[in-house]
Amino acid sequence: MSKKNRVNVIGAGVVGLSTGLVLQKNGYKVKIIAEHWPGDLSINYTSPCAGAYFSSNFLFDERCKKFQDISYKTLWELSYINDTGVIRIPNFDFYAKDPHIDSETLLKDIYYKFQVLPKHELPKNVEYGVSFTTDVPKYLRWLLNQFTSAGGVTQKAHLNHLNDAFEPDVNFVINCTGINARTFCGVEDDKVFPTRGQIVIVWAPHIKFAKSLHEEEGAYTYIIPRKSGEVILGGTMDVNNYDGTPDSKTAESILNRCIKLCPELSGVKILRHVVGLRPSRKDGIRLETEIRQNSVGKDVMVCHNYGHHAYGYITSWGSAIEALDLIESSVSNQKEARL
């Protein structure tokens, strides 16, 4: 692919960084423009706050299932590289009520060592459970380093409008603005809404497995260890809640639920409380293209890639490759039109 095809990616969350890296490694000249970068903390910068692990949440959308498959296989390979921050751990997902889903058909071909747990191995008051070996990616800095090492360019800036990314020599703009797509001028997608998540981060290096419990009325408890010895305890799913301040009663509830699920957490040291806004979207992920014009009347292809809800890490690589395919198709069509 010719280097003359310049791409600006807006947003440096896990989706933006993954998309930028895939494009840069496939011959495009990419610049990522973002106000927030790995190491920054902001209620509008979701990726650093994410639990960031694969669970057995059933993604019925066939496109999302494809993205999940691609991302899992990619991250599995990355887990063999020491500096990525991706690790493999045993994972146990429990359901208070049997979801009556053929999970083996849905997930067996995706997850390593996937199995439905027999009834006698389930905790009290749990009707269904699965186990598999999963990845816990905390690797935004690694993605950024890979991107810049491959020749990618970064720009720390606050854009007021989508058109601000339409530089004269840019052929493509990838919109990975996440939760900000709701208010970002030129996009203003009213289907985007926040799903607030609160977590408690504790020091528990003895925890070497992930556990989660799906209860009735949407309650969701999870325990996710990091390679560093920190453990993420969650969580909440508060729709249309923008409050970035941790709530003490919620934190207490999270701790109690996690200790009940995993007694080995009793007495652990609390390190900090974190709140993030999942970039949810009615109708799911928006991954599509449109043609707009820059200030001198040149056509610019805009590829939207946002609305990943709680599945940004799970779908990041798959959606990045889909964005690449959409751009490649556009380039091929343009060549055919000139012939």
Rank of each mutant, 00 (worst) to 15 (best):
E215F: 01
L75N: 10
T148Q: 12
Y306V: 00
P225L: 08
L122S: 14
Q155T: 11
A210R: 08
I10S: 08
M1C: 06
K249N: 15
H308L: 05
D61Q: 10
I224K: 06
V300M: 09
A210P: 04
I32L: 10
D283P: 03
T46N: 10
G318H: 04
L162R: 05
L140Y: 06
P205N: 11
H214T: 13
I254Q: 06
E127K: 02
K191I: 02
N175L: 12
Q198P: 04
P38A: 08
I43V: 06
D247L: 14
Y306P: 03
W317L: 08
R292Q: 15
H214I: 02
V231Q: 11
P48G: 05
I259Y: 01
I223R: 10
K108I: 05
D299N: 12
S131G: 02
I81P: 15
G13I: 00
I201D: 09
T154Y: 03
S42T: 05
V126F: 04
F54T: 01
L59H: 02
Y313E: 10
C258M: 10
T236R: 07
I32P: 05
G129T: 04
E77S: 13
Y242D: 15
T46Q: 07
K97D: 14
T250I: 14
C185R: 08
R141W: 03
S248K: 13
K211F: 04
I174R: 03
G267H: 06
G16R: 01
S55E: 08
D299F: 01
K208A: 11
E35S: 02
F54K: 06
G297D: 13
C303R: 01
E328I: 03
